Simulated assay, not measured.
Amino acid sequence: MTATPPTTTPPEAPSPADPSPLTPRRRMLILVSAVVLLAVVGALAFVRASSRADEKNHARAGGPAVSHGEVTLAPDGGGRRLVFRNMAWGPFRDELATVPADAPDGPRTASGVKCLRFHSAGGTGICLQAEAGAVQESYRAVVLDSHLKKIADRPLAGIPTRARVSPGGHLVAWTVFVGGDSYAGTDFSTRTSLLDLRTGKYDASLEDFTIRKDGETYRTADVNFWGVTFAADEKTFYATLATGGHTYLVRGDLAERTVTTLRENLECPSLSPDGTRLVFKKRVPGLSADAPWRLYLLDLASMKETPLAEERSVDDQVVWSDDRTVVYSLPGDFGADLYSLPADGSGAPARLMPSALAPAFLG
């Protein structure tokens, strides 16, 4: 009789679905991952809570309510509106925002688009923006369509200070400080550029235009331009020319590429909607060197000047809310507030809205 060898059963292989054993190294990795995840969640919660606290604190201090929504520059975009740079503290600071023109203290709708300087007309916007760089901040001029989409842009050679769009939306202009950062002194230089959206023609500097002063061609190295304002014909503009320690109102002609001096001691002109008057800032003798300006009206037919009823120094290029009223900025608790004023020298200034800058009236 032959003996049958005993059978042996091989050990069962582990199932692929079985978990790997929790080694000390694996436990440590899980612990570290959990700690990092909790830290991230906590940081996000802190940022959100801080933003909400900032909004609540500003609201308690009289600040406006701001929320994200659609902002349009279309001329027929739903009634008369005011679009501006929102200066209210919180997550929407520096964004373009809008309110109904007849309810400037109402809740604001913010767009998500940030601008340092802004203007809009005819469905076109010009937004002067800051760009963070690895070494230092840079700046860019961005032309926007009515939906706030970029249609053109140019790098800027300095700090943004003025911006304008022509009434029909075909021309845009902007000014930057190339040297210095204030108009109050004399040690600054500016560069003013023009872009024609109809042809794409870009004039990097108004200094390339022919200057006609006192009936003669004028050229010197110390020329500066700033504060463009456009006429309705989409070719005529007014601006400030500085040279030889004096400032002048000039009338420009895009077709001829000329600027002609009209009057001395005028800065940052703003043309009325009917094209007959300019409101500007004028240096008045005897005032502080840091706050030397007063607002004046110039009738272009008679060249008669009328002082406006604002006794504070206004370092701004006003905008016209209608044919009778101008709006401008003055320093405020959160950077700047907007004020309105009759353009004929009557009345008194009134605060239009807090925490706002660079307004444009649309619709």
Rank of each mutant, 00 (worst) to 15 (best):
H147T: 15
H147Q: 15
H147G: 14
L148K: 12
L148C: 11
K149M: 11
K150M: 13
K150G: 12
I151C: 07
I151A: 08
I151S: 10
A152Q: 14
A152K: 13
A152E: 13
A152H: 13
A152F: 12
D153K: 06
D153F: 04
R154N: 12
R154G: 07
R154D: 10
P155Q: 05
P155E: 06
L156A: 08
L156Q: 08
A157F: 04
A157Y: 05
G158D: 01
G158E: 01
G158L: 00
I159H: 03
I159M: 04
I159N: 04
I159A: 04
P160C: 03
P160A: 02
P160Q: 02
R162K: 10
R162I: 07
R162T: 11
R162A: 09
V165P: 06
S166Y: 09
S166Q: 12
S166D: 12
P167A: 12
P167K: 11
P167L: 11
P167R: 11
P167G: 12
G168V: 11
G169S: 13
H170W: 02
H170Q: 10
H170N: 09
H170Y: 04
L171I: 04
L171P: 02
L171M: 05
L171T: 03
V172Q: 02
V172S: 02
V172E: 05
A173P: 12
A173I: 06
A173E: 12
A173M: 07
W174T: 05
T175V: 01
T175M: 00
V176T: 03
V176W: 00
V176E: 01
V176H: 00
F177E: 02
F177M: 01
G179S: 14
G179Q: 15
G180V: 05
D181W: 04
D181H: 08
D181L: 04
S182P: 09
Y183I: 13
Y183H: 13
Y183F: 15
A184P: 06
G185S: 09
T186D: 15
T186H: 13
T186F: 14
D187L: 05
F188T: 09
S189I: 07
T190L: 14
T190S: 12
R191S: 10
R191C: 05
T192Q: 05
T192V: 03
S193R: 03
S193V: 03
S193P: 09
L194W: 11
L194V: 15
L194Y: 10
L194R: 07
L195Q: 05
L195Y: 07
L195R: 04
D196Q: 07
D196Y: 05
R198F: 04
T199W: 08
T199N: 09
T199C: 09
K201V: 14
K201S: 12
Y202W: 10
Y202I: 04
Y202K: 02
D203V: 08
D203Y: 11
D203G: 07
D203T: 11
A204R: 13
S205Q: 07
S205Y: 04
S205T: 15
L206I: 01
L206Y: 01
L206C: 02
E207L: 13
D208S: 15
F209V: 10
F209M: 10
F209C: 10
